[in-house]
Design a protein around this nucleic acid. Structure first.
Lengths: 99, 99
DNA sequence: TCTATATATCTAATAATCTCGATACAAACA
DNA sequence: TGTTTGTATCGAGATTATTAGATATATAGA
């Protein structure tokens, strides 16, 4: 559980999580088709919006997948990321009932 | 919100929050009367249980008060700490609905 | 095969956090 | 007033996080 909080203890990662809640509200679907799909949003699109380096975003996203907050799918040369809503609700429940 | 997650991103602080959820289950009320009261639990009792230095616990508790997770009351030479349940539930709601 | 694009990994510099001991302050009490 | 107990603050060394650039890998297309 500490590991999840460590991931959330960063402005940029929180933002990414928020953007991915409603990708169409935060990423311009017209400009970036087909990088926003049912699979999620691909790294380069997230990276451009975040304004951090590609290596930083890559390691952020990897860590978010590792702690279960995101899921990823590799499709050709792209890796798509989406939220793991189940995990996020589990976190909310944990704080509500157990923390 | 990031600041709250930073506070939670530490094993010891998480433990303290958990101990204070049910102080009587975690602190021996007989040994330490009257340090566990309606006001909460005093610092020295928390410090002894945590096994970290007094200065560390003091700054942890202060930071937890500052971010709203705990409330404190000074009574004579003691400072008592208890959870801010309202704030904790707000955090759970934020994660559930907004994050 | 050569090139361009997307992603992943490695290395390193800077910044922040962790944690302690020393010390200061504050209250209780002999 | 001097001493003890509880708490707060300061300064510093060790550890961890942040973040970028360089480089490697993988895929798609000319």
């Amino acid at each position: 559980m500490v590991d999840i909080f460590k991931i959330l203890a960063n402005e940029h990662r929180l933002q990414i999580l928020h953007w991915l809640k409603n990708p169409n509200n935060h990423f311009n679907a017209e400009d970036i088709e087909p990088e926003v799909t049912d699979y999620g949003v691909c790294m380069s699109v997230i990276q451009k919006k975040a304004g951090l380096s590609q290596s930083t975003i890559s390691s952020y996203l990897t860590s978010m997948v590792n702690c279960g907050l995101l899921k990823s799918v590799r499709e050709g040369q792209w890796t798509y990321y989406k939220r793991n809503e189940k995990r996020i609700q589990e976190l909310a429940s944990y704080i509500k009932d157990t923390l």
